[in-house]
Design a protein around this nucleic acid. Structure first.
Length: 110
DNA sequence: ACGCTGACGTAAC
DNA sequence: AGTTACGCCAGCG
């Protein structure tokens, strides 16, 4: 494997995100037991470009803001994909983010 | 081989 | 309550 185990874990969690739901980098990092490494989660997403099945558009920052939209094929692609899943987005901010938030440490840890 | 940057988040001031 | 600084680790210049 080229990517570190941390990266693989991130990809796996991201793929587990249900349709119409979103999560944050920090939530994934916390689930992996490295909340301080939240930056690595975002960085892992950057590596997900060459991997299929990684809905990076469902991963946003703690504010529910589409900070990484600029890294997609097109800056508008991320918001577009979210709206297609029924998620309302305005000014790069997910509306009802708290309600759509999917926490792996809660949904998976159970 | 070395250093800076970067899809974040928390702590400190 | 708002702003600044730091940590984390991999990728790239």
């Amino acid at each position: 494997m080229q990517q570190s185990d941390f990266f693989q874990s991130v990809f796996q969690v991201v793929q587990l995100i249900p349709y119409g739901r979103v999560t944050s980098y920090g939530a994934i990092a916390a689930y992996l037991g490295a909340k301080k490494s939240s930056r690595l989660v975002g960085y892992a997403m950057n590596a997900s470009h060459g991997i299929s099945g990684i809905p990076a558009h469902r991963v946003v920052n703690r504010n529910g803001m589409l900070t990484g939209k600029m890294h997609f094929e097109t800056p508008d692609r991320m918001q577009e994909l979210l709206e297609l899943e029924g998620i309302q987005v305005e000014d790069n901010l997910i509306i009802g983010f708290r309600d759509l938030f999917w926490d792996p440490s809660v949904e998976l840890a159970l």
